[in-house]
Amino acid sequence: MVPITYYLLLAAALFCMGMFGVLVRRNALVVFMSVELMLNAANLTFVSFARMRGDDLGHVSAFFVIAVAAAEAAIGLAIVIAVFRSRGSVLLEDLRTMKH
């Protein structure tokens, strides 16, 4: 029997790796992939707690997170395409119009 803490620590590590990618990478697409990693880490936490409590409510939450992640990916990638069309670049440092 694997302790649930191991799963939760793995989820925390994945979340932190995703956060590192969001903070450090410059390519908007890789930043999106890092956000997906963070969403997956949240899902893993939901499923781990479901197993800990013996209650499959966490599975339903993970299901909804997956659906919302699909919507987010569709909209986000459409925005990346629109930005690439108008700026010719997907590097976040080239998008500084709103920077003060």
Binding site: I4, T5, L8, F15, F20, M52
Partner: peptide, 26 residues
């Protein structure tokens, strides 16, 4: 950003290690 990530993981690990580790017996 890197330092914040390491700090977040440390805080999360401290909290998670305090939780009960046993999965439910069904």
């Amino acid at each position: 950003g890197g330092a914040a990530t390491v700090g977040l993981f440390a805080v999360l690990a401290i909290i998670l290690l305090k939780l009960p580790a046993e999965p439910a017996t069904l």
